[in-house]
């Protein structure tokens, strides 16, 4: 494997966004890119990352290799990379370590780290391609704000999506709160759009602790997309350049 990123920033942010949800995971490398799928310990949430080969310049991977990595250790190594550094990830066949090289833009500093790998026997879930009943795209910062505000009211949020908009409702000991985002196109700045497509109304409850955790990915993308169907897990997607993505799946709470 040899994969070079123009800026370490992307990889630093991805790892930062998932390290509190999953501790040990395999980075599955093959000629289409670097993928990761891992569940949290309680098996309620799942993270699915794809960094396509086109995300790297260049990308080369001659055979499929899983790189079993402790994300706490990887975070320690990535601290040594500045956001603007060129990052190269390298590994041999049947590796004991993954090699990370950080180069300053002006090429006067090269840092090189070897991170020990681990054998991880991970349960892999097959996630079918799903036609969701409702899809809502919104500014990622707005979603983060809504989740963190409602977490102060309750540990759970009900998300209701209708043609009129998407509503987040929390009921807690101190009272209730709700936030509605209406569909809206900002002609000057499409990053501010709220776009809803719906085949049937959806109402589901989720843990805000998990949702606020997913929001650690906010810096990766201006927009976030929520995909919902009744009685299936929510998908929260942060789309990245070159068809790469960071997706979180969250099982709904059981109703009354």
């Amino acid at each position: 494997l040899e994969a070079r990123l123009e800026a370490a920033d992307l990889f630093k942010k991805v790892v930062e966004a998932i390290k509190d949800l999953v501790q040990h995971c395999n980075f599955d490398c093959n000629d289409s890119g670097i993928a990761l799928q891992a569940m949290d310990n309680s098996h309620v949430a799942l993270v699915s990352m794809m960094l396509t080969a086109d995300t790297f310049t260049p990308f080369r991977c001659d055979r499929n290799i899983p790189l079993g990595i402790d994300l706490t250790s990887l975070t320690k190594v990535l601290r040594a990379a500045q956001s603007s550094d060129i990052l190269t990830i390298k590994s041999e066949d049947a590796p004991d370590v993954v090699n990370l090289v950080f180069e300053g833009k002006d090429q006067d500093r090269i840092s090189e780290y070897d991170l020990k790998l681990m054998d991880i026997d991970q349960e892999h879930l097959g996630i079918p391609d799903t036609e969701y009943a409702a899809t809502a795209s919104m500014p990622a910062a707005d979603f983060k704000r809504i989740c963190s505000d409602l977490l102060l009211i309750s540990e759970a949020v009900s998300i209701e999506c209708t043609k009129e908009g998407i509503t987040f409702k929390a009921e807690g000991d101190i009272g209730n709160g709700s936030v509605t985002l209406r569909q809206h196109s900002d002609l000057e700045n499409s990053d501010k759009n709220v776009d809803i497509s719906l085949t049937e109304p959806v109402a589901l409850s989720f843990s805000l602790k998990y949702l606020t955790g997913f929001c650690k990915a906010t810096g990766l993308s201006n927009q976030v997309r929520l995909c919902l169907s009744n009685d299936v897990p929510l998908m929260v997607e942060y789309a990245l350049a070159n068809n790469s993505y960071l997706r979180f799946y969250l099982a709904p709470k059981i109703g009354d």
Binding site: M39, S42, H43, V44, A45, L46, E123, H124, L125, G126, I127, P128, E155, A156, S205, S207, V232, P233, Y249, A251, P252, K253, I254, G255, D256
Partner: peptide
């Protein structure tokens, strides 16, 4: 209301 489903109920192990 405090109980959460787990993902295996929805997705098969691949």
């Amino acid at each position: 209301q405090n109980h959460q489903h787990i993902l295996q109920g929805f997705y098969e192990a691949a």
